[in-house]
Amino acid sequence: MKFQHLTLSLIAAGLLAACSSAPNQNQGAAVEDRSSGAASSGVDGNRVTTVNANDGANGSAYPELRDPKNILSKRSVLFDYDSYVVKDQYRPLVEAHAKFLVAHPKVKMMIQGNTDERGSREYNLALGQKRADAVKKALGLLGVAESQLESVSLGEEKPSCTDASESCWSANRRGDMLYSGEF
């Protein structure tokens, strides 16, 4: 995590866009309210320091996971509307990943559940979790150790498709499997 003090440049940029003669209202001493006898106000407490968030993912160490001819390069399980059950068509895919994880007990997997965009973001986050949990449970039943698996949700926040259409929504009702190094 890096801390960068961009406050002044952001304000300057905003002012350039707005009004070149406008001064910086954020500097200077506090406004004091003398009529109420109260202590000086917190208008200068309004300074905000910018933080830039960075991630550290740099890819998996296993080439077979990236080989497009290998089933292990396929990572997505799609779900029906309002459904949290892994469909039979994904059984070979889930089995292949289970086999890889059993053979590589030090490798971990994060399963990210996703939903379409309709409704509350936080409720969708909880629904996405149910999809990730369904994939995790299927892998567990195939012998993968609990300690290798983490199911999480991205809710509606990371759609693979952004049109407001049924075909797009169905692409977003999905569980994605990520390996160590990819998250």
Binding site: D55, E150, S151, L154, G155
Partner: peptide, 26 residues
């Protein structure tokens, strides 16, 4: 930012923040 949902508490004036909840899962 950690590829999963994590709860942070962020001091606006200083930019200092801490993880408030980062348990296994969401």
């Amino acid at each position: 930012e950690a590829k999963k949902p994590v709860v942070y508490v962020h001091n606006l004036a200083t930019g200092q923040r801490n993880v408030a909840a980062n348990f296994k899962g969401s």
